[in-house]
């Protein structure tokens, strides 16, 4: 009897082992809206800026802009022409790809809002190349005025991302601030400015 139960236990164990091991095997999954894992993007995986961070930062700044007197002026006037200057990555993080995503998001919001006309970035790049200029992340009012006149833009929307990076006892916190600014091309006067914040950290 004892022997039979031992044999039975061994058989069960040998059959269960591959199942148990197989259960730990990693697999690829799909996530986001409309999938079986809608919350996949919710968790933070590092101290960099992810899709959710970019969306939140963008939303805060755009909401502030749309509630501003400048936006009200734009709504009441005949679709002013705006151009978007690259957002400067002023952090030590490699976030240039994220900055490009942010730029595209901003562009999409402006275009779909229908309140302003947006100069295509390709056209802007062509003009800069034609004028033999070099557009960097730094907003350069003189260059902006020159390009603005050439492309017919009345306003430049620009921004800057800054970060405060702190460490303590194997923990790390990065506090990001995204500034958004609207500058009138003709006068170089800052017509609107806002900021949004996001902190990311590794805690133990």
């Amino acid at each position: 009897m004892r022997r039979t139960s031992l044999v039975r236990s061994l058989i069960v164990l040998s059959l269960a082992a591959p199942v148990m091991l197989g259960g730990c095997k990693p697999k690829a999954i799909r996530g986001g809206e409309g999938t079986e894992n809608p919350d996949l993007d919710e968790g933070a995986m590092g101290t960099g800026l992810d899709r959710k961070d970019l969306d939140d930062l963008m939303k805060t700044n755009m909401t502030a802009l749309m509630a501003s007197p400048l936006w009200a002026t734009w709504r009441s006037s005949k679709q002013p022409v705006i151009a978007i200057w690259p957002i400067k990555n002023d952090t030590s993080e490699h976030l240039d790809d994220q900055m490009l995503t942010l730029l595209s998001d901003m562009e999409t919001e402006f275009i779909n809002g229908g309140v302003v006309s947006v100069v295509s970035r390709e056209r802007q790049a062509e003009m800069i190349a034609e004028a033999n200029l070099q557009q960097t992340g730094d907003f350069n009012p003189a260059m902006a005025a020159q390009i603005g006149r050439q492309i017919g833009a009345q306003y430049f929307v620009t921004g800057k991302l800054q970060a405060v990076d702190e460490r303590f006892d194997k923990e790390r916190r990065v506090q990001y601030t995204l500034f958004l600014q609207v500058v009138e091309v003709e006068s170089s006067i800052v017509k609107f400015q806002t900021k949004s914040e996001r902190s990311k950290a590794i805690v133990r």
């Binding site: 004028a131 033999n132 200029l133 070099q134 730094d138 350069n140 009012p141 003189a142 260059m143 020159q146």
Partner: peptide, 12 residues
């Protein structure tokens, strides 16, 4: 070494 031709603003 290299400078944009129309660089009128002071460096940030």
């Amino acid at each position: 070494v290299e400078k944009p031709p129309v660089e009128t603003s002071p460096p940030a």
